[in-house]
Amino acid sequence: MSIQHFRVALIPFFAAFCLPVFAHPETLVKVKDAEDQLGARVGYIELDLNSGKILESFRPEERFPMMSTFKVLLCGAVLSRVDAGQEQLGRRIHYSQNDLVEYSPVTEKHLTDGMTVRELCSAAITMSDNTAANLLLTTIGGPKELTAFLHNMGDHVTRLDRWEPELNEAIPNDERDTTMPAAMATTLRKLLTGELLTLASRQQLIDWMEADKVAGPLLRSALPAGWFIADKSGAGERGSRGIIAALGPDGKPSRIVVIYTTGSQATMDERNRQIAEIGASLIKHW
C-alpha cells in the first residue's frame, strides 16, 4: 500500500482519535458579512469528516447552483462504474471539434489522439474542462443518470439537468442544476469515506481534487503551510461562485467545507476574496 493510499485508508482512524471539535460562531459572522459585502445569498456548511456531524452552517438547506462543483460527483459516478466493471479508466475516447464547448483548455489539445477516461476526469476536476465533463456525462448516460446515481446514494436534493455550459445559467428560483450545502457536503463525505467506492477509487477521487489547479484564489489562499486540501470550485452566471473541499491540518483532511453564493453584482475577484476570507476565519478558529 502506498503512503497516499495509507493516508486515505486511515482518515477515519486518525479522526477518531482527534480531540473533540467545537464550532466557532466567528466564522458564521464572516459568512454573514460576506453576504453584506456581496449583496447576495451565501450558503455555508462545515462537517466533521469522521462523524458527519454538522459543526457550523448557514442557509444549509437553500438551493444554490452547483456550477462546476458537480464534476466531482460526476467522476465519482464514473469511478463507481469502474468498480462495477462497467468502465475502464484506460479506455480512450475520441471526439471532434464539434464536441468542444466553451472553456476546454485540455480537451482542445487532444482532438487528434483523444483522451482516456482517467485523463478526462483529471481534466474535468483539476482544470474544470467543460468538454471533458460533457464527454464523461455521455459515458454514464447524461445528466439524468448522474441525478439517479445521487438518488441511489441517498441524495434526493442534488440534481443535474443540463450539460456544460448551460448548467451554469443560475436563474433565480430555478431548481435545475442545483444542490443544497448540506446535501453536497453529505454526498461528498460519502464519496470520500464511505463504502460506495473502493479504496482505490476513493484515493483516485481525492487525488484529482488535491491536484486542483484553478481554485488557488479561494480556500487555498488562506491555508497555512502543512495543511491538506482537496477541492473543486465552480463559477456561473449572475454572480455565482462555489467551492467544495476536504481539508485539515497535519497533512490530512478532517472536515468537509461547502460554500456557495449566487445573485451578486460583485466582480469575480471580490467573490473570490470573500470566500478566501471565510476560509481564513475557519482556519483561525479551527
Score class of each variant (00 low, 15 high):
199 L>P: 10
267 T>E: 09
59 R>Q: 15
118 R>G: 11
42 V>F: 01
66 M>Q: 12
275 I>Y: 09
268 M>Y: 12
160 L>V: 09
117 V>M: 06
214 V>A: 08
281 S>D: 12
169 E>L: 04
28 L>N: 12
170 A>C: 02
130 N>I: 01
227 W>S: 03
140 I>L: 10
190 K>A: 13
120 L>F: 03
181 P>Q: 00
57 S>V: 05
277 E>S: 09
58 F>W: 12
251 G>T: 05
104 S>Y: 15
234 G>L: 01
183 A>C: 06
284 K>I: 15
84 A>F: 07
159 R>F: 07
80 S>G: 14
158 T>L: 02
168 N>V: 10
223 L>G: 04
120 L>H: 05
32 K>S: 13
102 E>V: 04
220 R>L: 14
254 S>I: 05
156 H>Y: 14
89 L>F: 11
88 Q>N: 15
197 L>M: 15
211 A>C: 10
81 R>L: 06
120 L>C: 06
106 V>H: 15
67 M>W: 01
71 K>V: 00
116 T>L: 13
32 K>A: 14
62 E>K: 02
29 V>P: 09
256 I>V: 14
66 M>L: 09
263 G>P: 07
109 K>T: 06
124 A>G: 14
39 G>F: 09
30 K>I: 10
174 D>A: 09
49 L>V: 14
57 S>I: 04
114 G>L: 03
250 D>I: 02
150 L>F: 15
209 M>K: 01
274 Q>I: 08
165 P>A: 09
93 I>G: 13
53 K>E: 05
38 L>R: 12
121 C>H: 01
49 L>T: 05
150 L>Y: 04
35 E>S: 13
198 T>D: 03
249 P>Q: 12
278 I>R: 00
30 K>M: 15
192 L>C: 09
112 T>V: 14
100 L>E: 14
169 E>I: 04
145 E>F: 14
159 R>Q: 14
120 L>G: 04
70 F>M: 13
191 L>E: 05
278 I>L: 12
262 T>A: 08
248 G>D: 04
82 V>W: 11
101 V>G: 02
178 T>N: 02
236 G>M: 13
68 S>T: 00
111 L>R: 08
51 S>A: 09
179 T>N: 00
260 Y>L: 08
200 A>H: 05
215 A>I: 03
77 A>I: 14
169 E>A: 05
34 A>G: 05
215 A>N: 02
218 L>Q: 03
151 H>M: 09
103 Y>T: 05
52 G>A: 12
164 E>T: 00
230 A>F: 11
269 D>F: 05
72 V>D: 00
234 G>V: 00
103 Y>N: 05
238 R>Y: 15
272 N>H: 09
148 A>Q: 11
231 D>Q: 15
194 G>P: 10
253 P>V: 11
39 G>E: 06
128 S>M: 00
120 L>A: 09
238 R>Q: 08
89 L>S: 11
101 V>H: 03
266 A>K: 04
152 N>M: 04
209 M>D: 00
132 A>M: 00
181 P>T: 09
212 D>W: 15
84 A>W: 13
123 A>C: 05
271 R>H: 15
120 L>K: 01
145 E>V: 05
268 M>R: 10
231 D>P: 12
30 K>L: 11
245 A>L: 05
153 M>W: 02
215 A>S: 15
40 A>C: 06
65 P>I: 13
147 T>Y: 05
111 L>Y: 08
229 I>Y: 10
94 H>C: 05
27 T>L: 11
158 T>R: 00
282 L>F: 10
280 A>L: 13
135 L>Q: 13
249 P>K: 10
129 D>L: 00
39 G>Q: 09
238 R>G: 05
266 A>F: 08
110 H>P: 12
59 R>A: 12
259 I>N: 01
65 P>F: 12
239 G>Y: 15
85 G>P: 07
148 A>I: 14
227 W>L: 01
154 G>D: 12
